[in-house]
Design a protein around this nucleic acid. Structure first.
Lengths: 150, 150
DNA sequence: CAGCAATCGATGCTGTGTCAACTACTTTGT
DNA sequence: ACAAAGTAGTTGACACAGCATCGATTGCTG
């Protein structure tokens, strides 16, 4: 008989949750330094750039950027400050609304995004995806899609 | 025909990864304030307390605590500083090794852990687990267990 | 057993993100 | 058309975690 270790919580859904937390943390820990080393950019940088890239005109308002990401508006202000200083985006005023600000990808931003995202993908592939079967990819994606597809 | 949106990345394993990231972030965002409000403690606090609780003698060395969690040793020093100031743990020297420090749960720490963990569980149940089927719990747990079980 | 490398935990410094408050502008209601 | 309420983005103050380093202690090797 296996020894039973006392634990504050146990159960199948708790293990699922634990899995999410640890997978997230461990994969990020492995993947962020790689990006930093090759391109000098952090994951939040990449996140901003890729969201802009996915937009028709490569631009988004601060507000939209903040909503889509995991940042508050003020956090996004500072993040965009840094990305802008690095030369990957620039701010522009919104024609109809003088409160608003567009953030838009520069060509340098576009270039670095394409290269960085490509490496980032293979990093995730290596550290995360390659450890799961195709069935598991589908199962996890299906189970968790609800947390980002509004 | 559905319109195809340009995207930097696509694929089933990428969706799985995205799911992990967003599930993690959105659930934590929902759950942390609840804990803070009811007990005045943060998730890192709860994490430390529950790891001590799960140990035979309700104690662990700094080093072990840091390894098991997602903190560095220095981060753990400061975290334990705060938890200690709150009265939930105390430090004690290790008999055989004068470099070492035990962190051990106080009775107050034990009391608050039991109550806080109970609420935390129902929060996770409500925000995360209740949105997945039992099959999905098992699938996600199986797929992701490797990231925390050694 | 002498000396040198490795380990443990703490600390100064720094980067980064949040909250609350602020300014500027826009919308709504009468 | 004007006051009040709401929205967009920024800013100051702060909390927190990491890195590099330190002092103390222990283990390893010749």
């Amino acid at each position: 008989m296996a020894a039973k270790k006392k634990q504050a919580v146990a159960g199948p859904w708790w293990d699922a949750w634990r899995g999410v937390v640890f997978a997230n943390a461990r994969v990020l820990q492995a993947v962020e330094p790689s990006l930093e080393k090759s391109f000098g950019i952090s994951l939040p940088f990449l996140d901003v750039l890729s969201r802009l890239y996915d937009e028709p005109n490569h631009r988004l308002r601060m507000q939209e950027l903040a909503e889509q990401s995991l940042f508050t508006r003020s956090g996004m202000t500072r993040l965009v400050d840094r990305v802008e200083k690095a030369g990957f985006v620039r701010r522009e005023s919104v024609p109809g609304d003088r409160r608003g600000v567009y953030v838009l990808l520069t060509s340098e931003g576009e270039r670095i995004l394409e290269r960085a995202m490509s490496q980032h993908q293979s990093d995730i592939q290596r550290v995360f995806a390659s450890r799961l079967s195709p069935d598991q990819h589908r199962a996890v994606a299906d189970a968790l899609a609800q947390f980002w597809r509004k």
